[in-house]
Design a protein around this nucleic acid. Structure first.
Length: 465
RNA sequence: GCCCCCAUCGUCUAGCGGCCUAGGACAUCACCCUUUCAAGGUGACGGCACGGGUUCGAAUCCCGUUGGGGGUGCCA
């Protein structure tokens, strides 16, 4: 990999957790947009240091989710995936270097001992008690970073200067008692060896940043450019969590949300191009996105608005795209020709593609009469009359087309002096089983004469009892 | 507790000292259109958290208060 060039190198470093978090999706997208526009590189690094989070299939899930978002491993901007666990030696070497330089020291105190002493001294956390004991490495001995006096100033592209008083940062652990490297160390060393120039991640990492920056300094390498973007929150304004909230990207995908809509929506959370336009293609977003324009406050992930975006994107699809997409959401045995014919009529009625089957099932399957709809509509006397007369009119229809079927019903209803909206109701319930659905005459057209007549006659029969 | 971040309609945002009697989008409501339901059109409702400064002038700058969030692990 080219780690010496002047081209910016971004990275996305998720830890495998079994599903892809929408917040992670947004962070990945931010990095991707930047890498693309700046002619840089997007590095994917799987942070699998914690053994509990280390399953091969989790990694594939991440790659699949990224691909769905348009971040493809095939793209020249993409690099990876790399695995944190595979650079263990580099982490250890860096730790050794820090020890040699006197920037880190071993500590034999157990968590219990630390808690005890802290309580005794009335302090919180670790007080650097082993700093100058000259403890050597050994089982159960952790390696700690010797936090220097002074102030650490983090220059953040999103937030400006953030200052931390080093005195409130305790000597944090670099190597666990079993010798394995901990997040802060591994993360920094990997970023260094991968030549990362820009660290763009969620705000929750901001408190880690002074520690990491001290590590960069101690290791003698110029720090990367930081950018901490606000987190995504739920309705209670709490950070999106997998326990309480619907955060899995895969789930939204399974529910029929379009990748384009999801991507576009995600990009409007915490960022705007500065004008009044929200819906725009990725190609434009990519050119417009600036870290400097990212907001500072947490944003609520609103499924209602996501849905609105999705509906918007569905309506922008061409008929071909629409039919193609619908095809993936209905049973394989449903007739393609009929699907092609009805698809355009459901386009403005869709929120997600999961809505498709229930909207048009009556065209492909035996009709199921919704009793509530039936009693509501058929109880009216004129409805019964309309149904009977329309049935015979349709039986003798000279032409089977939406326009003609509509005209025939208009003829039928005329003596009754009613509006089309009312007159179509009994036909609709008889044929589709419900009071709402796609445009009626178009539906009858697609359904065909025979099936339509069958259903009308069944309904008439049922009424005759 | 301590550290850090944040604060414009219910929500996402525009605004970066005068163009703001604060603009757009989603949601909500009303009306129009209409073949049900949608979509579409028009309109309404609704906000600068509070208090001090700075300034001729503050949503915009500074300070404080309050409120919210994040972190505080031998997790990442």
């Amino acid at each position: 990999m080219d780690v010496t060039g002047s081209r910016p190198r971004f990275r996305f470093a998720p830890s495998p957790t079994g599903f892809f978090h929408v917040g992670g999706a947004r962070t990945a997208l931010f990095n991707w947009a930047l890498a693309k526009r700046l002619g840089g590189t997007f590095v994917l690094r799987i942070e699998d240091t914690d053994e509990a989070r280390n399953r091969p299939e989790w990694t594939q899930g991440i790659i699949d989710a990224l691909a769905w978002l348009g971040i493809s491993t095939e793209d020249e901007t993409f690099e990876g995936p790399f695995f944190q666990s595979e650079s263990n030696e580099a982490h250890l070497a860096a730790a050794e270097k820090l020890v040699t330089a006197g920037a880190a020291y071993y500590c034999a105190m157990s968590p219990e001992e630390i808690a005890e002493r802290a309580k005794l001294e009335g302090v919180t956390g670790y007080g650097g008690w082993s700093r100058d004991l000259g403890t050597g490495p050994g089982p159960g001995h952790v390696l700690r970073f010797r936090v220097p006096d002074g102030t650490t100033v983090v220059h953040d592209l999103v937030r400006g200067e953030v200052r931390f008083d080093n005195s409130v940062i305790e000597d944090f652990v670099l190597l666990r008692g079993n010798g394995s490297p901990v997040f802060n160390l591994a993360n920094v060393v990997d970023d260094m060896s991968m030549g990362i120039t820009h660290v763009v991640r969620a705000e929750e990492h901001l408190p880690n940043t002074p520690k990491q920056q001290m590590l960069w300094d101690a290791l003698g390498i110029p720090t990367p450019t930081w950018g901490h973007v606000p987190v995504l929150v739920n309705e209670q304004r709490k950070k999106l969590s997998k326990r309480r909230d619907k955060v899995a990207l895969e789930q939204y995908r399974a529910e029929g949300f379009l990748a384009d809509a999801m991507v576009n929506y995600l990009m409007t959370l915490g960022w705007s191009a500065g004008d009044d336009q929200e819906i725009r293609p990725w190609s434009e977003i990519q050119e417009l996105f600036r870290l400097e324009d990212v907001n500072l406050s947490p944003a609520f992930f609103d499924v209602k608005k996501l849905s609105a975006f999705n509906g918007e994107y569905i309506r922008m699809m061409s008929t071909e795209e629409l039919v193609e997409a619908c095809g993936h959401w209905v049973p394989a045995h449903w007739d393609r020709t009929r699907l092609d014919a009805i698809a355009p009529h459901i386009q403005p009625r869709l929120i997600t593609f999961a809505d498709v089957p229930q909207l048009i099932d009556f065209i492909f399957e035996p009709v199921v009469i919704d009793e509530e709809s039936w009693s509501k509509v058929m109880s009216a006397e004129f409805s019964v009359d309309i149904l009977h007369e329309a049935t015979s009119a349709y039986a003798n229809a000279s032409e089977w087309s939406a326009d003609h079927l509509k005209a025939l019903l208009e003829d039928v209803m005329q003596p009754f002096g009613m509006k089309l909206g009312k007159a179509q109701a009994p036909i609709r319930v008889a044929v589709t089983g419900r009071t709402v659905g796609p445009p009626l005459f178009e539906s009858l057209d697609v359904l065909g004469r025979e099936e339509t007549l069958d259903r009308l006659q069944s309904a008439a029969q049922r009424l005759g009892q």
